[in-house]
Design a protein around this nucleic acid. Structure first.
Lengths: 245, 245
DNA sequence: TCACGCGATATGTCATACCATCAGGCCGAT
DNA sequence: ATCGGCCTGATGGTATGACATATCGCGTGA
């Protein structure tokens, strides 16, 4: 009963704005807060699903949907078995890239588009990489080149190894944001390259250029690095699309 | 039953490598493929949960978990009610930025890191933007500046408007990949800027620089654009962190 | 000492039921 | 004839209970 016209209406701030969210979404938010506030650290294990049910006072279905969302967001991984459960992931740029790849593959975005964007980033990264690379970084780069050369002879060289080199190069900047950028590129890149089945022809030349890049970083020779990267990407561009426009 | 040693094992390629994934994950992948192949267009509505159960031959819980994942990935939104259901979203980096913000707050990624990465992208974008900007693009840029100046006087200028300008600038390249790059930056950027509550001081100068940027694009003066953008970002860098290092 | 197996614990999946929400049409009152 | 409320069907949201599967650790026997 009770007509809606009542004295208490004078306080418009009162009355619940109505619970509009899904319960599972509320749980997701709640856990996100715990993570953001540091109450939950990477590597920590959440209580089991059944226990979470009791704690939140909801059914297992609801808890599971919340966990799915968190898992899809890359915040945690779920392991089955005896001492399994939901473990907070150590935040890594890698996970971000995975999520990006989906959306990128959706957008009407050609391989040429991606390559062009990569052009910008890879060239832009060079000054910082050359400037900040530590001895350890240089060593790692050369190690990867050596490994690639071996794989080349054994016929096991693949796109992944090339991508790994470029990512490692970005890591020389010691800037996680830049690493993330590079990683998020190589998901879609690999996809579009695999589509055109053109990986093989460039292998030898590509590895050779990687070596020269490593050398340039070691010598802190920005000009040389830019040169090599330019031709390196140029050929990639010609392979993935007729032109980068 | 069935010792693993059996005559048929000679053909290792045969026999199912065993279904190792979650069923819900398989469904997710399957729908992603449909989307990527264009069988499902943005705006389309998936069959109802109950119908999907029958089609896939799984239970409703499983379908729902798959939908949660897809929803969390920003691929679709779900509406309840009579003509509700799962509708494909138009792919936009905007949604992505929201999801990224969570992870970025986790990653040991500072605002300074992001700003530095942005430095690379924004400067790298300029040559393409200057070269490819159409009259329409230029017009839009000036319109945004004018709007910003008005908002400035009214005191309603905010970060969003600044971000919108930079994104519009990236659109001048007419490369969706680059647009997405820029968009995915401004989500996290805004967050870290809001944290430090330092939005106000730069407003007037920032808008002024935006105008000069628009002017440079109109004149196709790459050098000028680079200059302005350099100082523009420099000041941003000083605001968000003591240093970009 | 090693290996096998069993059990405990966790997630993965299923089937069913019921509730909440929304759109549209039906129907009665004005 | 029009407006309002009510009913109904379609759909997502949640709860419950059960069984299947994966994994680790421990105990026991060879």
């Amino acid at each position: 009963m009770a007509a809606s016209s009542d004295k208490a209406l004078n306080a418009p701030d009162l009355f619940s704005p109505v619970n509009v969210d899904r319960v599972s979404q509320v749980i997701v938010d709640q856990i996100k807060v715990l993570i953001r506030d540091g109450k939950l650290q990477p590597g920590d294990r959440l209580p089991s699903e059944r226990e979470l049910c009791q704690r939140f006072g909801v059914s297992r279905v609801t808890v599971r949907e919340a966990l799915r969302v968190l898992e899809a967001s890359g915040l945690l991984t779920i392991r089955v078995g005896a001492h399994g459960g939901a473990f907070l992931t150590t935040p890594s740029a890698e996970r971000l890239g995975e999520g990006l790849a989906d959306l990128i593959s959706l957008a009407r975005m050609t391989a040429a588009n991606v390559t062009e964007a990569r052009f910008i980033v890879e060239l832009g990264v060079l000054p910082l990489a050359v400037e900040r690379a530590t001895d350890e970084d240089v060593e790692a780069l050369f190690a990867m080149v050596a490994e690639a050369e071996q794989a080349l002879e054994g016929g096991t060289y693949n796109i992944e190894m090339s991508a790994a080199f470029h990512i490692r190069l970005a890591e020389c900047t010691h800037n996680p944001a830049i690493e993330m950028l590079m990683q998020s590129f190589h998901g879609p890149m690999r996809m579009s390259i695999e589509e055109s089945h053109l990986a093989a022809p460039m292998s030898r030349q590509g590895v050779e250029e990687h070596r020269r890049l490593a050398e340039a970083v070691k010598q802190r020779d920005l000009e040389a690095a830019r040169d090599v990267m330019g031709t390196h990407l140029d050929r990639t561009a010609q392979r993935v699309g007729s032109t980068t426009d």
